[in-house]
């Protein structure tokens, strides 16, 4: 799969310089092989490779000249194979048990827990997670919403959620069932498209199987069309570009 992704960030005012953390390098697993990969920016910058606490590859980007816009271009080629959503051969920095914890963006919520338990009923763990994923997919209209910072409970009560909220609802639901769950940032090549675009989904852990991908936007597990970049407790932690609040142009 070929990735060609160019994002231009414009800042509200001119910045004296910029420090950003880029999680834009795909990790290798049994079903994801990086053939070539590069990150370019459209001005003089220093880039330093590193790793965050979740084990994600991070590229620190430092620009010390004034700027009011920045273009980041990612080009590469990744080979993927269909593992029915099961993650195999990945390196893990943290144990699954960590991913039971709530975060500010994914707080434990009684309404979401009740929803999860109703859907999961007496099902086996794996079947329960598939059912919850399908139920989130069916229940919500996914569309951009005005207020990106509204509490998740409010989003859940609303019928319309943005893509990140839909995935966060799945995370909270899975954790309420005692299943570790995490956010995955990456790319996805939609049916009929030739290039992949930024995408986010979830992974949940089932003892005896491992981490399994669930994409509430599609209502099924990811297959060959998904490229994983980074994982964390919520979308913010797995953010491909973290830095000063910027608007993607």
């Amino acid at each position: 799969m070929t990735i060609e992704h160019r994002a231009v960030y414009r800042f509200a005012g001119a910045q004296a310089g910029l420090v950003q953390a880029l999680r834009l390098t795909p990790p290798t697993s049994d079903d994801q092989t990086v053939v070539r990969w590069r990150i370019d920016v459209d001005r003089d910058a220093r880039m330093r490779p590193g790793r965050d606490g979740f084990g994600n590859a991070v590229t620190m980007l430092y620009v010390d000249a004034p700027l009011d816009r920045l273009a980041i271009e990612v080009t590469g080629e990744v080979l993927t194979s269909n593992a029915h959503g099961v993650l195999r051969g990945a390196t893990e920095q943290l144990p699954p048990a960590l991913f039971l914890r709530a975060t500010e963006a994914t707080p434990a919520d009684p309404a979401i827990a009740a929803f999860a338990h109703a859907v999961a009923a007496e099902l086996e763990p794996l079947a329960a997670l598939h059912a919850v994923n399908a139920a989130v997919h069916e229940r919500f209209v996914v569309a951009p919403v005005g207020d990106a910072s509204r509490p998740l409970a409010e989003a859940f009560a609303d019928g319309t959620v943005d893509p990140v909220e839909a995935t966060h609802i799945f995370l909270v639901a899975a954790r309420s069932l005692g299943r570790p769950a995490r956010y995955v940032s990456g790319y996805r090549q939609a049916d009929g498209e030739t290039v992949a675009s930024p995408h986010g989904w979830a992974e949940a852990y089932v003892e005896g199987i491992g981490w399994i991908g669930f994409d509430p936007l599609l209502g099924r597990s990811p297959e060959e069309a998904h490229v994983r970049l980074a994982t964390a407790l919520d979308a913010g932690g797995a953010s491909p570009v973290a830095g000063v609040p910027v608007e993607e142009a």
């Binding site: 965050d52 606490g53 979740f54 084990g55 920095q93 943290l94 144990p95 048990a97 960590l98 039971l100 914890r101 407790l233 932690g237």
Partner: peptide, 11 residues
């Protein structure tokens, strides 16, 4: 792992 004082960010 359930303790907020354990900071996964620096693991």
């Amino acid at each position: 792992f359930g303790n907020p004082q354990f900071r996964p960010e620096i693991a």
